[in-house]
Design a protein around this nucleic acid. Structure first.
Lengths: 161, 161
DNA sequence: GGAAAAATGACAACTTGGTTGTCATGAATG
DNA sequence: CATTCATGACAACCAAGTTGTCATTTTTCC
């Protein structure tokens, strides 16, 4: 994170912080919806729904996992993840391999096709994001990540199912 | 925004920027979903759906507007906004007043009840956000806002309908 | 001023992300 | 061993949001 400290780096008082974070969240909503829509519009091209995309992305970072593990990792219901995994499997993007640690719950792994697909999607997204020009510095982005992570942590305890 | 410049404030190269923004977006998704769920769980208490909440919030900041204006402001389909407005009107949170500039498309305005409702909701949300403790500085939050706004601008051209 | 084009309201069908419920079975735990 | 917990499979359901269509009103433009 940022360890070189900036001038107005004094931690904010909770009240003002809450105020500012409300503003941040007012941005998150529209951003999420717009990107979601844009991704959906492009989905037919790739053949990936947002859910499948998320599964592939997870497997790409974390390596093979079981369905319930993925659900917990993303705070999604296990049933939903299962559906997405089934869908991905039907498209040959993902496959089940025996789980040494559990006979019944097999590990899900990216196939070559799946790896290629998620790589392609990420590349397209990166290309889009490269158009966010301007004067954003590393410090800006780091701070953004930090703030969002902090907010996310607040909602960690929301248990699903 | 930040005008006092920090050490590592050099604008990032587009490639690295895209990389970092991908990470940012990986946070936005889960955050949005989690908050959405949490808000939904609390919704019965307030009787406000997320859509109605968004409409009230918009009217609170911008004052009376027509339905299509709201749709454009949030990049939502006019039909969807209309549905939310109807729902809000049915709950007495919102009312139509004559539009001097347009005979057919009336202005939508918060009622007293609507104002009270959105104020209460915002207060509750602020109370939650006040728990995001830690060392977040004004600079951090400003940077976050800046980054998100920049990303949002990229998707402004996504036309709806 | 009048004709064509765009904007609006109303209503309906549909898609998708996501949850909840249930049941049978296999795994962990006392 | 008995019980409890985790998993897969399947289904019903909900909410957010879009798309389509039609009639009417407004705007634009010749």
């Amino acid at each position: 994170m940022t360890d070189a400290r900036t001038p107005h780096d004094a931690p904010l008082a909770p009240d003002e912080l809450a105020d500012r974070l409300t503003q941040v969240f007012a941005l998150v909503g529209p951003l999420y919806r717009r990107v979601h829509r844009k991704v959906e519009q492009a989905a037919p091209l790739e053949g990936l729904s947002a859910g499948v995309r998320a599964v592939l992305d997870l497997l790409r970072e974390h390596g093979p996992m079981t369905v319930p593990q993925m659900g917990r990792a993303q705070a999604l219901s296990r049933q939903f993840v299962q559906r997405m995994v089934n869908e991905a499997a039907a498209q040959g993007l993902v496959e089940a391999i025996p789980n040494p640690a559990h006979q019944r719950s097999s590990l899900i792994r990216l196939t070559d096709a799946g790896g290629a697909a998620i790589t392609a999607v990420l590349a397209r997204e990166r290309a889009l994001l490269r158009q966010v020009g301007g004067d954003l510095s590393r410090a800006d982005v780091d701070a953004c990540t930090k703030v969002l992570a902090r907010m996310l942590a607040l909602f960690d305890d929301v248990d699903v199912n």
